[in-house]
């Protein structure tokens, strides 16, 4: 192997990342030799079979897990704990049920050193941005699944992270809500140009939103292939190029899998 230096514009740099879990004193290899550079402002989608370590990868990048070998760096700084420059959205909105929408979003700013007036403004701006104006005082159980996930998006964005990690954020939503929120995500991403890494089981969604689609193999979790989606945003869902890439990813994903 030649010396590999990360490209100068790379924001997030993952090199020979491996991760084991110990179950019953036996090591379970979850990730093996992951190499991935994600550029500033890039949208990377990750697809792969269930259990191939996609969530684990995001948790490592977020800093929620910190026991790994290899390197994960953001702007040249090693990641080993959560930091406000990395936000995360889960499949379950994970709103705190005893807080209103506004309180849930504001909770993300507890540890931020900014004046209260500024905090309040940011919170309301984000609630507005995700289309929840009028629901500031609603409790999570009074929201539909899509609305709850919008609130979760607002909470993740309010601390203005450089990198947003999304773990099947739209996985629990119905098809229509899902399409709408895909467009919202795209709009927010275009507006703020932050780096986004999204895990999804929906190949169409991965291709529609991603600049690149990372296809992972299971047992142990490895990167099988990275597919470029060289189309400008916002995209046309009906684009034949998009469909061709989708079919290609789908074929690659099901390749070698006995159905």
């Amino acid at each position: 192997m030649a010396f590999e230096t990360p490209s100068p514009t790379a924001k997030l740099s993952i090199q020979s990342l491996s991760k084991n879990y110990v179950i019953d004193q036996k090591a379970l290899r979850v990730l093996l030799n992951i190499d991935l550079d994600v550029h500033e402002g890039e949208f990377v989608s990750i697809v792969g079979r269930s259990g191939c370590g996609k969530s684990t990868l995001l948790r490592l990048v977020s800093g929620l897990e910190n026991d790994y070998s290899g390197t994960i760096q953001l702007d040249g700084k090693v990641i080993n704990a959560p930091s406000l420059d990395r936000g995360m959205i889960f499949q379950d909105p994970s709103l705190l049920p005893w807080m209103t929408v506004r309180e849930n979003v504001a909770f993300a700013l507890v540890n931020q050193n900014i004046p209260k007036a500024e905090k309040d403004k940011r919170v309301l701006d984000l609630i507005d941005l995700v289309g929840l104006k009028g629901f500031e005082s609603a409790y999570p159980k009074e929201l539909s699944g899509g609305m709850a996930q919008r609130a979760a998006i607002a909470r993740a964005l309010v601390s203005q992270p450089k990198v947003l990690l999304l773990d099947e954020p739209l996985g629990a939503l119905d098809a229509l809500t899902r399409l709408r929120l895909q467009n919202e995500l795209q709009r927010i991403w275009l507006q703020h140009r932050m780096t986004m890494i999204m895990v999804t089981h929906d190949v169409e969604e991965a291709v529609y939103l991603g600049d690149r689609v990372v296809i992972m193999d299971p047992e142990p979790g490895r990167i099988r292939r990275i597919v470029d989606v060289p189309l400008p945003h916002p995209r046309d869902r009906a684009s034949p190029v998009l469909h061709a890439i989708r079919d290609e990813v789908l074929k690659d994903l099901t390749n070698g899998v006995v159905i």
Partner: peptide
């Protein structure tokens, strides 16, 4: 994830 959310936002 509730605890994760708290940790993520430090």
């Amino acid at each position: 994830t509730w605890l994760d959310v708290a940790r993520i936002h430090r």
